[in-house]
């Protein structure tokens, strides 16, 4: 397995706030990784840097050897924490839009998932519920054949049954060449599918271990350990 994502002394400062502090991290391909931390810990800042939406104050990040830019956008499928799609569009129009945008997009897979979740391609985005809108966004992202999937809070707004579907989609879509990075605070729902867990606190990575290492070492679930580490 090769290194897909590499971060070196990555830091981001907003005026007086240090949102990321000297992050050093390597992620291999073929992993499902959880990026776990409380609100305001730096998860979204980190994810935005990976996607070239923010530039680091210090340090650097490379994805498959390239700094975030045109080349990395071809291989990174990103689910932002809020929707950026035009709400007047129909679901099928957005599928077409993605097909035009990304070479690796697989429309047949998108339609299959939409059908499974009972979302009609004829519907306009603005008539969908918040949860269904989130499902559409996730379907679009997972329908790409990417090397790195970056999912910012993919399950927060969807019901538990759809959550299970999301998780089985991630398992089904598993590919030894691709890595999935999932930021969430709904840990108990997702910890069983993770290889590695990263705890981020005040912009620092405080733990990076496998789920089984954590459970063997602490005799508790990742969720329980999280509650302990981030206790108020």
């Amino acid at each position: 397995m090769s290194t897909l994502l590499h971060c070196e002394n990555l830091s981001k400062r907003y005026a007086n706030v240090l949102a990321l502090n000297n992050v050093n991290l390597d992620l291999e391909s073929g992993k499902i990784v959880g990026l776990l931390g409380p609100n305001g810990s730096g998860k979204t800042t980190f994810i935005k840097i990976l996607n070239g939406l923010l530039t680091p104050t210090y340090g650097k990040v490379t994805i498959d050897g390239n700094e975030p830019g045109v080349e990395t956008k071809k291989i990174v499928a990103y689910l932002p924490d809020n929707s950026y799609l035009n709400t007047w569009m129909r679901v099928e129009q957005i599928v077409d839009y993605f097909k035009d945008f990304y070479e690796d997009f697989r429309p047949e897979l998108a339609y299959e998932m939409l059908e499974r979740l009972g979302i009609s391609p004829k519907m306009k985005l603005k008539t969908l519920s918040k949860g269904n809108k989130e499902k559409v966004c996730l379907i679009l992202v997972m329908s790409r054949n990417a090397r790195l999937y970056v999912l910012d809070e993919p399950i927060a707004g969807v019901d538990p049954a759809a959550r299970d579907y999301v998780i089985s989609t991630i398992i089904n879509n598993y590919n030894p060449d691709a890595t999935v990075l999932i930021s969430t605070h709904l840990i108990s729902d997702i910890e069983q599918v993770l290889d590695d867990v990263i705890f981020i606190k005040d912009g620092n990575i405080v733990l990076h271990q496998t789920v089984d290492e954590i459970r063997a070492e602490h005799q508790k679930s990742v969720d329980e350990l999280f509650r302990e580490v981030f206790k108020w």
């Binding site: 073929g30 398992i171 598993y174 069983q192 789920v211």
Partner: peptide, 10 residues
Amino acid sequence: ALTAGVNPNT
């Protein structure tokens, strides 16, 4: 992996 809801690598 699918029936147990766990990671394929595991």
